[in-house]
Amino acid sequence: MTALVMDSPLQVRASGRNAAFSPLRYPGGKAALANFFGDVIERLGISNARYVEPYAGGVGAGIALLRQDRVQELVINDIDPAVHSFWRAVVEYPDKFADLVVNTPLNVDEWRNQKHVYREANESNYLALGFAFFYLNRTNRSGILNAGPIGGMDQSGNYKIDARYNRQQLAERISRIGELSSRITVISLDGASVARQYAGDPSSFTYIDPPYVEAGGSLYLNSFTYRDHAQLAKSLDRCPDGNWIVTYDPSDFIRRIYAKHDVREYELNYSANRTGKARELLIASRPVARVLA
């Protein structure tokens, strides 16, 4: 890992193949950071590490690290009822979920049906709610829940509703997660409380990826207020010597509320010739900052 240069971003070499482990499409997903996180965990010397995501979403990095045995346990938290229902259903009923993936029709009528289930938000039937969330995530434009289906309601677009829905591939991802279910814990709590619970645990590595300051309202269903961001920062102020990383969009506000911690820009690089994405902020606890130095 590259040492910090104050006028240059931290260069992080990404691996695009890790994105293939999660069944979900997520705006701003961080699966490409899996190798980076794995290296940090090793350099921290955490044995039998627990990897925690308080704002889980697609959990692309966590699934990759678990499948590669770079961590021994995965804690998935998301307070959104539909996201929580998805992960709970996948972990508890992977075979049933995979059957739904393979056998549910892919057309606008079924899209309307799944949209209705999603809007009803009946958490008592978490298999149905979780699948409805998954179905919309895979068939909506850019995977955004409040968008319409790929190809439009009349399916006149260049791409159709099934463009991002490879049945067999997705069912295989579900099944592979099911094989690891004994090592996965799924909870549905406020993300800041989960961060407080695990950020100071020496056996855990906590990756905190909250809704972003500027783009959060358009990318996430559960957007943060400025007060929420500040409260999360205060929670982490109490755990300066834990093993944690937070990522954010570049923001003077974020730099200000995390002033007690190591804050730097980082940039994902997928290859020597291609920059993966625009610069973002990475906030690190003291132990993590030391291994990045």
Rank of each mutant, 00 (worst) to 15 (best):
S156H: 12
T139W: 12
I177A: 08
G130F: 05
T185L: 14
I161P: 01
I144N: 00
S142Q: 11
I174T: 00
I161N: 01
G151P: 13
Y126G: 03
E172H: 15
T185G: 02
N125S: 08
L189A: 05
V194A: 10
L145Y: 04
Q169G: 14
G151E: 12
A195R: 05
R173Y: 12
A147M: 13
I177M: 12
V194P: 12
S142E: 06
P149T: 15
R141W: 11
G178F: 10
P149M: 15
Y126S: 05
R176S: 14
S124V: 05
M153G: 04
L189C: 00
L180V: 04
L129H: 10
F131K: 09
I161Y: 01
S193P: 02
Q168D: 11
L180I: 03
R141N: 13
N137A: 05
Y159Q: 00
P149C: 15
L189E: 07
V186W: 13
N146S: 06
F133H: 13
S182G: 13
Q168R: 12
Q169F: 15
A192S: 04
L170A: 02
Y135H: 09
R164S: 02
I150G: 07
S142T: 05
F131H: 07
N140V: 10
G151I: 15
N137E: 06
Q155T: 03
Y126K: 04
N140Y: 08
Q155M: 12
F133N: 07
I187G: 06
E179S: 06
A192H: 02
Y126F: 14
N146A: 08
I184E: 06
Q169E: 15
K160I: 00
A163Y: 13
R173S: 11
D154N: 14
A192Y: 07
E123G: 00
V186K: 10
R183M: 07
I187E: 05
D162W: 07
N166C: 03
G151S: 13
I161A: 00
G151N: 12
R141E: 10
A195H: 05
G130L: 09
E123R: 02
N158Q: 02
L189D: 07
Q155D: 04
